[in-house]
């Protein structure tokens, strides 16, 4: 019998980086910025958190729980904020091509993570090529004390760390903001038709900057969750993989809706680890094929979404286009 009580919690914890990444990217894309640098942003977010945690963990004295969480968190947010600012400065202020800028940021972010990852491994003098931050991770993974008392219910719904719940809250908040508030309406208008938004008196530049930077910070948290929760505080170079790209695919899959992204990312998270749960006997080659699942589904989803013609389901109309008021 398929063991749902262990599969679902693992699928969910696998899904949180994807959820944070896609929520961040949705916010960004709603402002008309197509940030293909999300993968790099998440990488930088994770790495910055690791740097903060590393130095705090290796500082003399007893570790304080609150600080052990706050320091990596702030480092992560700052790192991803800077990535967002670089992106905005290049694409909004200097009107550089968004695709090229995004791809450059991904390359840069991955390089940044691997470079400092390598340096920290050197400093720590570890024998394995990883940075181990188990103490910090333990603070991050603190669970609700009563989670174990509820049997399978507790396991499926209550066994996660605060970042996981935060991710879901952020997604819901982002969805509500986009749909129900004046700010959300203005942001959507900026992404759809900046000239119209501008003529209506909305500060297009400000909205683009704020949405993109906030989006980057949310995506960066995905990187932090990955190191501190998912891998139990162990950073290895390149282990983060292509989660950043899956997050971008999820944006299209969910039709730019952060709330549906909660379910979609759990689905993707499940597909990501499904190969472990499908009995394949001794033939390991099949496992490799099952690992393809999330990518196959991504391709199918991209084809399906491109077939849909409904106007509401289309990407923001001005996505990827620079805006200049006096352009004739």
């Amino acid at each position: 019998m398929f063991d749902f009580a262990t599969f679902i919690p693992r699928a969910i914890s696998q899904s949180i980086p994807l959820l944070l990444g896609s929520t961040g990217e949705i916010m960004t894309e709603k402002s008309g910025n197509l940030n293909l640098g999300t993968a790099g942003v998440m990488y930088v977010g994770g790495m910055c958190g690791v740097i903060g945690a590393f130095f705090y963990e290796n500082s003399p004295g007893k570790m304080n729980g609150v600080l052990a969480v706050l320091i990596p968190l702030v480092c992560c947010l700052l790192g991803s904020l800077i990535m967002g600012l670089i992106y905005c400065f290049l694409t909004v202020t200097l009107r550089a091509n968004q695709n090229v800028t995004g791809l450059a940021l991904t390359t840069f972010g991955v390089g940044f993570g691997n470079f400092f990852g390598g340096s920290l491994i050197k400093i720590s003098g570890a024998e394995v090529p990883s940075i181990i931050l188990t103490n910090t991770s333990n603070f991050f993974r603190a669970k609700l004390p009563f989670a174990d008392k509820f049997g399978w219910f507790g396991k499926v719904f209550l066994s996660y760390s605060f970042l996981a719940y935060a991710a879901i809250v952020i997604a819901i908040l982002a969805g509500r903001t986009l749909k129900k508030t004046r700010t959300g309406l203005h942001l959507r208008a900026v992404g759809e038709n900046p000239a119209t938004a501008d003529a209506a008196g909305i500060n297009v530049i400000k909205y683009k900057y704020v949405a993109t930077c906030l989006g980057s910070m949310i995506a960066g948290l995905g990187g932090l969750y990955y190191v501190m929760d998912y891998t139990n505080g162990i950073w290895s170079n390149d282990a983060f993989g292509d989660r950043g790209w899956l997050a971008i695919a999820l944006v299209i899959f969910t039709l730019w809706n952060p709330v549906s992204s909660i379910f979609a990312s759990i689905l993707f998270g499940g597909l990501y680890i499904l190969y472990i749960y499908i009995p394949t006997g001794t033939n390991l080659a099949f496992k490799e094929l099952y690992k393809m699942l999330p990518y196959v589904v991504t391709i199918i989803v991209l084809i399906m979404t491109s077939l849909r013609n409904k106007r509401e389901n289309q990407p923001p109309e001005a996505l990827g286009l620079p805006y200049f008021r006096e352009d004739r």
Binding site: K180, R182, L185, R188, E192, N193, T196, A199, A200, E312
Partner: peptide
């Protein structure tokens, strides 16, 4: 026309207004 196609007429009309209180 400076209108956002996927929004409703009312949404377009209030666009950019900073009226007091909730939308």
């Amino acid at each position: 026309f400076k209108l956002v196609d996927v929004l409703t007429a009312a949404e377009n009309i209030v666009l950019g207004m900073n009226e007091e209180g909730k939308l």
